[in-house]
Design a protein around this nucleic acid. Structure first.
Lengths: 167, 167
DNA sequence: CTCCCTATGTATAACTG
DNA sequence: TCAGTTATACATAGGGA
């Protein structure tokens, strides 16, 4: 939508990223407003920058009202998709959970140290590597689980999706 | 943005309004996603139709987390924020810690959910993507911090180490 | 950040099957 | 209701103030 097409990934140049953020943020809010007016719906939008600055939009008077409505939307809802997933994937999800748990512990043991801030570069790199290793493990477990529980048509779809995600 | 310009008011024809809603809703969500990816920010979006149907989008953690963050954004913050903004120099370590904190929260919120086991494949992929994004962020911040606080000899060492890690 | 400018890429209004 | 098609209106990348 500009002089050049840009690819959908984090803009690395910080200055450029910020300019784009300003432009697109206002564009997004404009569109949110248009949707709410044209189609007579309630819209709530929040944006947090990585520095903790907040931008928001809401169609009505208060975003907090929309949030309340959102939260109350989920009361008495959590039994519906139980039977579909539970039986088939129980084992692989078990393993998955263990992995996540270990990952959690690893991170916690580092982050909760009083002098986390004083971690030196080597420690950080070490931690990153651990994260990455766990992530890889989780991924491969998921892929395995997917492959085991799927028809060949689904496998084809997955393969395509995976190839897509590489591009 | 179409054959004709339409004015910014509620579309009266119900059928037309619904068609427009479907198109613009997906457009809005797409733009929200693009903003979050390109500019590396957290985005939360909720849409309630007048018939109570809910559509939502969020960039990172579950929307509930973004909402929590939104709500806590207004608690005892009106004075401390000033200091954070003015102390720009101390930010890299701060931000690094915040990132790890967020990563932790993200994982926790998923693992501790009672129905974590019911995560479907899409959710898993989503979680993985989040992990990866956070990891990338942390890495780049570390590298930035390293570069700022080092002599050129150290920078050379780091560069060598980074190249090594790619092999 | 905000505003301007222009060339382009996108979103979408109206229409059709 | 749900996909395509097409012509237009809009949004925005890049560059500058």
């Amino acid at each position: 939508m500009g002089r050049k097409k840009i690819e959908l990934k984090r803009i690395e140049d910080m200055c450029n990223r910020h300019v784009t953020f300003c432009k697109r943020r206002s564009g997004l809010i404009k569109k949110a407003r248009e949707l709410s007016v044209l189609c007579d719906v309630e819209v709530g939008l929040v944006i947090f920058t990585n520095r903790g600055r907040l931008y928001e939009f809401c169609s009505g008077d208060s975003l907090l009202n929309i949030i309340k409505r959102y939260q109350s939307h989920f009361e008495g809802r959590s039994e519906s998709q139980n039977e579909v997933d539970t039986k088939e994937n129980e084992e692989s999800d078990e393993t998955l959970m263990v992995s996540f748990g270990k990952l959690l512990q690893t991170i916690q043991s580092h982050v909760e140290e009083p002098d986390f801030k004083k971690l030196n570069v080597n420690d950080m790199v070490h931690l990153e590597n651990q994260l990455e290793a766990s992530l890889d493990k989780i991924k491969s477990q998921r892929v395995e689980a997917m492959m085991e529980n799927s028809s060949w048509i689904d496998k084809m779809d997955m393969a395509i999706a995976m190839v897509d995600s590489q591009l």
